[in-house]
Design a protein around this nucleic acid. Sequence first.
DNA 1: GTCTATACTACGATAGAC
DNA 2: GTCTATCGTAGTATAGAC
Lengths: 210, 210
Amino acid sequence: MVQQRLLDIAIREFGLKGIEGASTRAIAAAAETAMSSITYHYGGKEGLYLAAADHIARQMGEQMAPAVGAAELPDTPEGARMVIHRILDVFAAKMAGDDTANWSLFIVREQMNPTEAFERIYGGLMGQMMERLVELVCIATGRRDANTARVTTITLIGQVIVIRASRASCLKLLQRDTIDADATAALQARISSNTDAILDRLIAERQDLP
Amino acid sequence: MVQQRLLDIAIREFGLKGIEGASTRAIAAAAETAMSSITYHYGGKEGLYLAAADHIARQMGEQMAPAVGAAELPDTPEGARMVIHRILDVFAAKMAGDDTANWSLFIVREQMNPTEAFERIYGGLMGQMMERLVELVCIATGRRDANTARVTTITLIGQVIVIRASRASCLKLLQRDTIDADATAALQARISSNTDAILDRLIAERQDLP
DNA sequence: GTCTATACTACGATAGAC
DNA sequence: GTCTATCGTAGTATAGAC
């Protein structure tokens, strides 16, 4: 389908060059269609940009929703911890895999210079996942202190997104030229172990509270 | 100085739009000089791009070198841990602050699509910091297992870079519109606590090895 | 719906005045 | 060293054929 190709290529080009830098001519040519079909389908460059953001949000939702689980929250610390592990594991696999390469620059650009497109992406599964993680950290550590849970969630996510956002540095450090299945497994295992250590520490710190 | 202004603006524009997307005309205009001075000083757009990368590497070196410490490595686990904390603390402050905003997109773009510019940046303090952290993690955990130390280092760095690379998500989660001094302190404290938990876990896991 | 043709603006590089 | 002027190319948008 023309529109599917157009959106996939738009995500890559907008990710690489931003909305101003990317060229609708180049996007249309790569999608093997005329430039004016962008005008027809999306009203112009800006419309295509927002449609690309929606496309990312939709795909991310489809691929991650099962792991995040929209169902009710677990009610035991052990259950919550299990869900946290599941989410981070799937998320890490996504970040390590090739299929998120094109999304990532688009999203990171929006993270650092948010436009309306960020609202569309965050309003989808990304926001749900982060807020769900905060709740899960609260349950897993038996804390009502939401602020600590929020800051902790940020650091947990950081462990995962670094795989993509610092890809070249990771490859240098690991002395590899791709993140293959072995490297992915090693990262997932370390993230899992770190997460347990972090959550245990939060539980221990709670005992010290007045 | 003209060249200083030119480089600062080039970093911002190249970060936002990439080498292809950015416009030398716009960069020159923002630096209040003629476009042809870019040709004169840097030979053209590509030369300016590489000079911008060198500029980042140089500034990063000046600002972070004291924390990384080129001197000899500490020889006790406690000493190594102290240096790890110091590096991550300073790095987190940098990531939270405004002065790295322009560098960040430039660097992240290079992380995901490396060119020669990445070599210039990584060849500076960034590579030194990461490799130094690997050594410090080895010493702090009493492990000779460099691979575990490398993977751990990646996750430690992830906790810090998320402050910038996922800035908009962090702000949403923290329900703020800036990362002020309070938020920075909270993140630093959590990163520090997490790091201790992670290192302690690594030491404990070591006891279980055959 | 998809294409071609066209109007207008902006791009990078370069030559040459000063 | 810094500027203006200019060339050829490529950008978006739009109108209109089919």
